[in-house]
Design a binder for these strands. Structure first.
Length: 428
DNA sequence: TGACCGTTTCCTGTTT
DNA sequence: CAAACAGGAAACGGTC
């Protein structure tokens, strides 16, 4: 693993190289030098990644992240030449695997990205770390599309990598520990990408996306990330100018398979092409009859008819995991139910009362303070960038019949736990 | 393999 | 007028 990280560093150019220049690989001799001070560098408990990266996504290597394997070495490799602040920064980069992504600092986000580059053998020059100047909370809020916008060719991989970390079966207190990383102030759907916007300028918009999140990220023509008008799409440029390059095509699903090139590569997180619903970025929409989306009936010679009711059928190309094991990732794992997710947000001081709060603690009445933020977090957990509060609330309403939730009339965004909901009471 | 479950997606209509 | 609510319909993907 250290080898692959070093290889990634050797291969590094431009931004990543600059970043990694602050990231010296220790020599064996340096390993022997003790840390300067216990107070400054308290002994770290044995480090393991927050989860077993292979448990659910069979194709992800089971080794610990590179950064983790170096954890034990870091206490000695920099202090001679490196200022303490730099040292601490480096230590933080290694520490990303010690805490939940929601709690990552910007530095830990970088540490994670460094690991991902090495782990999935991504071409470092195509991943500009400066595009990810966000803390973990913001990173977790970013949709798949945002990842792709920030990193056109490998955003999906990064998105699914972070989703993988989030998806693991951590106990909720580990998922959202109140340990100073994220505060409630960091979670605000209204400024859900503020860090990015402030530091990067506006995102370029999705050319045809109807996703409202894009409208809030409308491009500044003066933004350094404004890459041109629609006529510029698909220039083929692989660098910054291509941030806007559409990667998704029509609903036939697998047209972006080639995006990752044909070179042999370590297995990426699977389900990279899982979602191709009609809300995905679809810069080229062909409404000819044979190419019409499945639910879009075309009148002969006329305009598209109203789409059919119900959930549109998805076209999902088989993943490597599906082909080898016949399985995709688990969906209904323990603790994966929406109401339990909501309950655990209520239990967590990082999210309660900022995004969700009790209206009446004893009666189990609660309110979504930032409904779209909750939806975003739920979507992240389910690896579904298209989740919205509207959809989440539909699922919530199904709980009425099962008495997991009870209706609270007359109040918007307010629900009440029902008789079948367990574990929400203070002394439960 | 198929039934079932817990959503997810989309829709129309209503209420706030 | 927009946002939220309500609930039907159908599809999806995992579990049993």
């Amino acid at each position: 693993m250290a080898e692959s990280l070093k290889q990634a560093i050797d291969d590094t150019t431009l931004d990543l190289g600059q970043f990694l220049s602050n990231f010296p690989i220790p020599t064996p001799a340096q390993f022997a030098i003790p840390p300067p001070s216990e107070a400054l560098f308290p002994p770290t408990p044995p480090t393991s990644p927050p989860n077993n990266m292979s448990s659910t996504w069979g194709n992800i290597k089971s080794e610990q992240p590179s950064s983790c394997t170096l954890q034990g070495e870091q206490a000695s490799f920099t202090e001679l030449q490196t200022p303490q602040s730099n040292y601490m920064s480096i230590q933080n980069q290694f520490n990303w695997c010690n805490s939940h992504p929601m709690n990552w600092s910007y530095t830990q986000v970088r540490g994670f990205l460094t690991w991902a580059v090495a782990e999935y053998e991504l071409p470092p020059h195509e991943i500009n770390f400066e595009h990810f100047r966000v803390n973990g909370a913001k990173l977790c809020m970013m949709s798949r599309e945002e990842f792709s916008l920030l990193c056109p060719n490998y955003g999906d991989i990064l998105y699914l990598s972070i989703g993988k970390v989030l998806e693991e079966d951590l106990p909720m207190q580990d998922l959202f520990p109140d340990c100073g990383g994220i505060t409630a102030d960091d979670i605000d759907v209204n400024d859900k990408f503020d860090d990015v916007n402030v530091e990067l300028g506006d995102f370029p918009p999705s050319p045809t996306s109807t996703d409202e999140s894009y409208s809030s990220m409308s491009p500044g023509r003066n933004s350094p990330y404004y890459c041109g008008s629609e006529s510029d799409y698909g220039s083929g440029d692989q660098t910054l100018g291509n941030l806007f390059m559409p990667r998704y095509e029509t609903s036939d699903g697998d047209s972006d398979h080639d995006s990752y090139g044909s070179s042999p590569r370590r297995s990426y997180p699977d389900e990279l092409h899982m979602y191709d619903s009609d809300k995905e970025v679809k810069p080229t929409v062909d409404f000819s009859v044979q190419n019409a989306p499945i639910n879009m009936k075309i009148k002969p010679g006329g305009a598209p008819e109203r789409r059919a009711r119900g959930r549109p059928r998805k076209v999902r190309p088989p993943t490597e995991e599906l082909l080898t094991t016949g399985k995709r990732g688990r969906q209904h794992s323990k603790g994966n139910h929406l109401w339990e997710f909501v309950r655990d947000l209520l239990k967590n001081p990082s999210t309660n009362p900022k995004v969700i709060k009790w209206e009446d603690r004893r009666d189990g009445i609660f309110r979504f303070v930032q409904s779209e933020a909750v939806a975003n977090m739920w979507g992240r957990k389910k690896n579904n960038p298209n989740m919205t509060y509207e959809k989440l609330s539909r699922a919530m309403r199904y709980y009425y019949k099962r008495h997991i939730l009870e209706r609270v009339d007359g109040k918007r965004l307010v629900y009440r736990f029902g008789a079948e909901a367990k574990g929400w009471r203070e002394n439960e």
